[in-house]
């Protein structure tokens, strides 16, 4: 068989090879994204995603969407503009969450005994689904960045509230008021994460009284738009073939 001859001999065989190729690529993509995105999110989101006593209504809401919209934007750029596949963001979040859960369960709980209800990851799926759908329906990077990016930031807090609210129930503890999440942070000793390192409601925004979560979410949504643009371009550049020598 010469190099110019086809490797398959029938249409059925071609379909079979194509499907095998699909699963190989999807499997590889999933785990490459899992590894890269997980490291990225651990380094940039870090403690905000690790501990319930860091998941506050201001900085967690602000930081998590901004640093997590990166890979979804880039992978979307590759899968949409090359294959018209609208699951770039969701496949990223599936990879990230699988990695996060393995890490939290095997390391945080299995190795260092932190209870899972203290160190579970944030839920990023609602924003990812909407991000994919907006790109698919509009076929526009700009509209996806503005509408999808904004939705990604805005859906983060309400998407996590059903999981977090029970931990914000107050307790009286030796004469001080805390939330259950605060108490988890105090009870389950972390030698390298002292109380002062917690980034809880630092900064201004005091004029909004107690309703700071929506303000933080809008700010996060706005920055997510900008970050989406940036990483979408990264993705486009990375998915290009300009640097491959033409045959």
């Amino acid at each position: 068989m010469s190099a110019s001859q086809s490797a398959v001999r029938s249409r059925a065989e071609a379909v079979k090879v194509s499907r095998t190729f699909d699963w190989l690529i999807l499997f590889t993509l999933f785990f490459v994204v899992l590894g890269g995105y997980h490291i990225h999110y651990m380094l940039t989101g870090g403690d905000w995603d690790f501990w319930t006593d860091w998941k506050d209504r201001r900085l967690w809401v602000t930081v998590a969407p901004i640093v997590s919209i990166t890979f979804p934007a880039a992978v979307q750029a590759c899968l949409w503009w090359r294959y018209r596949l609208p699951f770039g963001a969701v496949v990223c979040i599936l990879g990230l969450l699988l990695g996060e859960w393995i890490n939290r369960y095997m390391n945080f709980w299995g190795w260092t005994y932190f209870p899972v209800n203290f160190c579970f990851p944030s839920n990023l799926m609602p924003g990812a689904i909407v991000l994919d759908v907006v790109l698919m329906l509009t076929n526009s990077m700009t509209i996806t960045a503005v509408i999808g990016g904004m939705a990604y930031g805005l859906l983060f807090y309400p998407g996590n509230w059903p999981i977090m609210a029970p931990l914000h129930v107050p307790v009286e503890y030796n004469g001080m008021m805390m939330t259950l999440a605060d108490l988890q942070g105090y009870h389950y000793v972390r030698t390298g994460t002292p109380e002062y390192i917690r980034m809880v409601e630092k900064g201004t925004l005091r004029t909004f009284g107690k309703d700071v979560a929506p303000v933080s979410a809008f700010f996060s949504a706005f920055v997510s738009i900008l970050i989406y643009f940036l990483w979408h371009f990264f993705g486009k550049w990375f998915a290009g073939t300009g640097f491959v020598q033409s045959s």
């Binding site: 006593d53 689904i129 909407v130 998407g159 059903p162 129930v169 805390m178 939330t179 999440a181 605060d182």
Partner: peptide
């Protein structure tokens, strides 16, 4: 997309009904 937004809204409102008293993290 619509289902996602509806589920998020429902989850938020049902959680607020189930946990009417919550306080922010203390530091």
């Amino acid at each position: 997309a619509v289902g996602t937004i509806a589920i998020v809204a429902f989850g938020m409102s049902s959680t607020n009904a189930a946990y009417p008293v919550t306080t922010p993290l203390q530091a």
